Simulated scan of single mutants.
Amino acid sequence: MANKDLEGKGAIITGSSRGIGAATAQLIGERGAGVVVNYRSKAPRAKKVVKGIEEAGGKAVAVQSDLTESQGTQALVDAAVENFSSVDLLILNASGGMESDRGEDYALTLNRDAQVNMVQAAMKVMPKGSQIIFVTSHQAHFIHDVSTMDAYEPVARSKRAGEDALRAMTPALDELGITLTIVSGDMIEGTITATLLNRAEPGAIEARREAAGKLYSVEEFAAEIAALVNKPGLGQAHTELVGGAEDFLARSR
């Protein structure tokens, strides 16, 4: 029986129709929060996530929204308020930029600008004691010190720009009593990013698996994200490094 510590809370999880976002949504729903499941274009997948949460006794609603459009971020906030009365938790999981069909500025638009816009929209309604979690990767978090694969570099730089932009917002978040938490993971087995990277640079996943000792599955990483929700004693802008960051830390000293 899951701990119902999020009963009565409203949560938005961006990019939650599949992968890490979907697995995190399931865990948050099991803890009693009403979850806004966000998808860009795949409605059936999002509805399946909602169904999974409801079957486990939770509450959820699927909302179509492209975060790179300003009305997209507002639609998620409105849905959380309408369905669950508040936004107490915002998990910024949506990211991308390896898609070849979205234009050259897409990575920065999604991984930095859309994240900031989402936080600005949510901050207006988030009560004191709320939490924002930004999900990133070691490849992005350490990009200033440790180089990454060529195919991933624009994405890594844009995600780090997003992280830096959110960190710059902490004085405003402090005033509102909202905590920002950064969670950084290694490459995750079976995600679309890992698949695209391995296609661009065959052997990339195997090399990371060797360097890290092990790579997390989607479910394992989602559990680490969920474990930071409502965790007591987290400082403002705390960074949680999940699994296999030792070689990054050693190279960035």
Rank of each mutant, 00 (worst) to 15 (best):
Asn3Gly: 06
Lys4Asp: 01
Gly10Arg: 03
Ala11Ile: 02
Ile12Glu: 05
Ser16Leu: 06
Gly19Asn: 08
Gly19Ile: 12
Gly21Ala: 07
Ala22Asn: 04
Leu27Pro: 12
Val36Tyr: 14
Val37Ile: 09
Tyr39Ser: 04
Lys42Leu: 12
Ala43Leu: 12
Pro44Thr: 01
Lys48Leu: 14
Val49Glu: 05
Gly57Cys: 08
Lys59Trp: 01
Thr68Trp: 09
Gln71Asn: 15
Gln74Lys: 15
Ala79Arg: 09
Val87Asn: 08
Asp88Lys: 11
Leu92Gln: 15
Ala94Tyr: 13
Ser95Ala: 15
Gly97Pro: 14
Met98Asn: 10
Ser100Arg: 12
Asp101Cys: 05
Arg102Tyr: 13
Ala107Asn: 11
Leu108Asp: 13
Ala114Gly: 11
Gln115Cys: 10
Val116Cys: 10
Asn117Phe: 13
Val119Leu: 13
Ala121Glu: 11
Val125Cys: 03
Ile132Lys: 04
Phe134Ala: 11
Phe134Trp: 02
Ser137Gln: 07
His138Leu: 06
His141Met: 09
Phe142Ser: 05
Ile143Pro: 05
His144Ala: 09
Asp145Arg: 15
Val146Lys: 08
Val146His: 05
Thr148Gly: 13
Asp150Leu: 11
Ala151Tyr: 15
Ala156Ile: 03
Ala172Gly: 14
Leu173Trp: 08
Leu173Arg: 05
Asp174Ala: 14
Leu176Ala: 15
Leu176Pro: 03
Gly177Val: 10
Ile178Ser: 06
Thr179His: 07
Ile182His: 10
Gly185Arg: 00
Met187Ser: 12
Glu189Gln: 05
Gly190Asn: 00
Ile192Trp: 11
Ala204Lys: 05
Ala212Asp: 07
Glu220Pro: 11
Phe221Asp: 02
Ala222Met: 03
Glu224Ile: 00
Leu228His: 06
Leu228Thr: 14
Pro232Ala: 03
Gly235Thr: 02
Gln236Leu: 03
His238Trp: 14
Leu241Trp: 01
Gly243Pro: 05
